[in-house]
């Protein structure tokens, strides 16, 4: 599947080990009250350190699938296996990020970032770890700020730092940049990819924006809706420079994926030339 092997990782700070291996096995889901199947028989693998985008138009069950992967909810059939173990509960080893940063407004930036460490009895790591992840997301100077005074992009950076602080093996991103302006979104997309590669993190991200998937992911999984099912699994073989500059090869790749996506979704979502 992965045609673009992950290049040598840069020197890791005090940071993780390798990312998680994720296997989704024949996963189906039906919400108890509505009784209409939302996902049917979804299976795929994500190798450690790989960035995979789940693409599909809204309502096709992407968020539902991501919740199942995170263990925040359980599928009605099939299973999610991470590093050989079936997921039955949420864990700070794989951290979920939502479209809204959901920071606790009565805490400072640093206190928000320290949350995960406090919950997992690692408070002793806070003085070293919190500044480190804040630097990583370029929010080093904001430790003592009230989170309510930050811009949308800054809040999402803090949420990213909070997710990274407990040294997760996998990030699950549910359209985390879709509420941001185009410029902020672009820079966060490329930063998240850089950080994930530096740390060797596995990422499963959900998007309805093809250009976001092509820019960030090593692989795109295309989902059809009613009920949500996996229809295509494409490798995105761009190097880092091609992704950042959005040059010729990027546009070729974008057109290819966009073509597949339009065939499935029945409409063009997002601009072809971005």
């Amino acid at each position: 599947m992965l045609t673009n092997p992950i290049p040598e990782r840069q020197a890791l700070r005090t940071l993780p080990r390798s990312g998680a291996h994720l296997a989704v096995r024949n996963l189906s889901h039906t919400y108890r009250w509505t009784q209409t199947p939302v996902l049917t028989d979804i299976s795929f693998d994500v190798t450690p350190g790989e960035i995979v985008a789940l693409l599909g138009r809204s309502g096709c069950g992407k968020s539902t699938l991501l919740h199942m992967i995170s263990g925040l909810s359980q599928p009605s059939a099939g299973e999610v296996v991470i590093d050989g173990k079936t997921v039955t509960d949420s864990s700070p080893r794989w951290v979920f990020m939502f479209q809204s940063p959901s920071l606790l407004p009565w805490l400072t930036v640093a206190q928000n970032v320290a949350m995960g460490l406090k919950f997992t009895r690692r408070s002793f790591e806070v003085p070293q770890r919190v500044p480190e992840v804040l630097d990583l997301v370029e929010m080093g100077g904001y430790a003592d700020r009230n989170v309510q005074d930050l811009s949308g992009g800054q809040k999402q950076r803090v949420a990213l730092a909070r997710s990274l602080a407990p040294k997760p093996e996998m990030l699950l991103l549910d359209e985390p940049f879709s509420a941001l302006d185009a410029f902020t979104r672009r820079s966060l997309q490329s930063e998240v990819r850089d950080i994930a590669r530096e740390l060797g993190l596995t990422i499963v991200m959900v998007s309805h924006d093809v250009s976001e998937a092509v820019r960030m992911a090593d692989r795109a999984i295309l989902l059809d809706s009613d009920p949500g099912r996996l229809v295509k699994d494409v490798a995105i073989t761009l190097n880092e420079r091609e992704r950042k500059n959005s040059d010729g090869r990027y546009h070729t790749e974008l057109k290819t994926v966009m073509g597949m996506y339009s065939a499935i979704a029945g409409e063009t979502m997002g601009p072809v030339l971005d």
């Binding site: 864990s91 700070p92 951290v95 939502f98 949350m115 406090k118 919950f119 997992t120 909070r162």
Partner: peptide, 21 residues
Amino acid sequence: DPAWLKVARNLGANPFHMLFT
């Protein structure tokens, strides 16, 4: 905000943390 509770649970909060944090 239900998302606060989800985030806390995801980051490893036990019921005691949920209540006091």
